[in-house]
C-alpha cells in the first residue's frame, strides 16, 4: 500500500526554522538579562556613591568632635551635633580659665601646663581668648608656636621650599618618620606643592566617553531602509550614532506600536486605540512634505498588514 512520502527536506526545514526561533528568542532573552544586570550594577554604584558623599559630609564635622572619644560623646546629654559642639566650646573655655589660674599660681609648672594647654587649643581649632590668658601669654600665642613634629617641620620649611619641588622626593632622603607622616596626613599638601598653580581649565572638564574609546561597533541592520527592526533606547543606555558620536538616551521605551509624526509645533502620535475624529488643528499643521511622507507610511503599513494578515 503506498503512503504519502514525507520529504526529508521539509522536516529538516521545520527543524531549522525552530532552531532559528529558539536562537532568536534566546538572544533576546540574554539581552534582557544583561540589561537588567547592568541596571542592577548601576544602582549598586549609585548607592556606593551616596555612601561616599555621606562619608565626605561626615568628614566636615568640627575637628573637636572628631578627636573626641566615643565614650565621652556617649556620656554627654546633648542630642544634636550642634549642641555637642557648643558644649565642647564651653568646656574648652572653662579649661582654659582653669589652666590660667594654675599657671598664675605657680610659675614652675608653666612649661608643662602650657604644653597641654596649647595642644588642646590647636586641636579644637577655635580660640576664645580670655583677658587673663592674653595678658599672661603675650608674645607667645598658640598659633605662632608650632605644635608637634609635623607642624613645626611645615612651619620651618614652608618658605624655603621651592614651589616646583616634589614633596615626595624630598621626604625620601630623610628619616622614616617623616615619610610616614608625609604619606598619611600631609600628602595632599605636598602633592599640591609639586604641581604648578597655573592650570589649563579645559583639562579639568569631564571627558565625554567617545565611541573610539570603546570597542568598534558594527551596525547590525541598515537603518535607512523603509522597513527595519529597531528598538527604542533604554534609559541610561549609551547610544552610538552611525557617524560615531555618542548620545545618552533619555526617552522611555514604548511598548505599544505607535506612529509618531513630527509637525512644526510638536509630534502627532498615533496610538493603537480607536480614533473617532481628527481635530482640525492637526490637519492645519501638516505641510506638503509631511503629507507625502504620511502617504508613503500608509502604503508601507498596508503592505505590512497584507503580508502579515492571516499568519498570526
Amino acid at each position: 500500500m503506498p503512503r504519502t512520502k514525507l520529504s526529508k527536506n521539509a522536516k529538516r526545514n521545520r527543524d531549522a526554522a525552530k532552531d532559528e526561533t529558539l536562537s532568536t528568542r534566546l538572544r533576546e532573552f540574554d539581552l534582557e538579562v544583561d540589561q537588567f544586570l547592568s541596571d542592577l550594577e548601576f544602582k549598586r554604584q549609585e548607592r556606593l556613591d551616596e555612601n561616599k558623599s555621606l562619608a565626605n559630609l561626615v568628614r566636615t564635622l568640627p575637628q573637636r568632635i572628631h578627636d573626641m572619644k566615643m565614650g565621652e560623646l556617649m556620656a554627654m546629654e546633648e542630642k544634636t551635633i550642634d549642641e555637642v559642639n557648643v558644649a565642647l566650646e564651653k568646656k574648652a573655655a572653662a579649661n582654659r580659665s582653669m589652666m590660667n589660674a594654675s599657671l598664675l599660681s605657680s610659675s614652675k609648672k608653666k612649661s608643662k601646663g602650657d604644653e597641654g594647654y596649647l595642644t588642646e587649643d590647636s586641636g579644637s581649632g577655635n580660640m576664645i581668648a580670655t583677658s587673663a590668658y592674653t595678658g599672661f601669654t603675650r608674645g607667645m600665642t598658640p598659633s605662632a608656636r608650632p605644635v608637634g613634629p609635623l607642624s613645626s617641620a611645615k612651619a620651618k620649611s614652608r618658605n624655603r621650599r621651592s614651589r616646583s619641588a616634589c614633596g615626595y622626593l624630598n621626604t625620601i632622603g630623610s628619616n622614616s618618620s617623616t615619610i610616614s607622616s608625609s604619606t598619611t596626613s600631609s600628602r595632599t599638601t605636598t602633592d599640591r606643592m609639586s604641581r604648578s598653580r597655573m592650570r589649563t581649565p579645559l583639562n579639568n572638564r569631564v571627558k565625554a566617553a567617545s565611541a573610539d574609546r570603546a570597542a568598534p561597533v558594527t551596525p547590525k541592520v541598515c537603518p535607512n531602509t523603509p522597513l527595519s527592526m529597531l528598538r527604542y533606547p533604554r534609559i541610561g543606555e549609551t547610544v552610538i550614532s552611525l557617524t560615531g558620536s555618542p548620545i545618552v538616551a533619555q526617552c522611555p521605551s514604548d511598548t505599544t506600536a505607535t506612529v509618531n509624526i513630527p509637525i512644526k509645533d510638536g509630534v502627532i502620535s498615533l496610538r493603537p486605540t480607536r480614533l473617532d475624529a481628527v481635530h482640525p488643528d492637526f490637519i492645519e499643521s501638516i505641510d506638503a512634505e509631511t503629507w507625502s511622507q504620511i502617504k508613503e507610511l500608509q502604503s508601507n503599513l498596508n503592505k505590512l498588514v497584507k503580508s502579515v494578515d492571516g499568519k498570526i
Binding site: L40, E41, K43, R44, R47, L48, N51, L54, A55, V58, L61, I65, H66, D67, M68, K69, M70, G71, L73, M74
Partner: peptide
C-alpha cells in the same frame, strides 16, 4: 568602643555600610 575617637568610629560605620550595600547587591 569608648576608647575609639569619633572619627575612627564614623569611618567604621561608613565601611559597614559599603560592606552591606555590596552584600545586598
Amino acid at each position: 568602643e569608648k576608647d575609639l575617637t569619633v572619627a575612627e568610629w564614623l569611618e567604621l560605620v561608613i565601611q559597614i555600610k559599603t560592606y552591606l550595600i555590596n552584600k545586598q547587591y
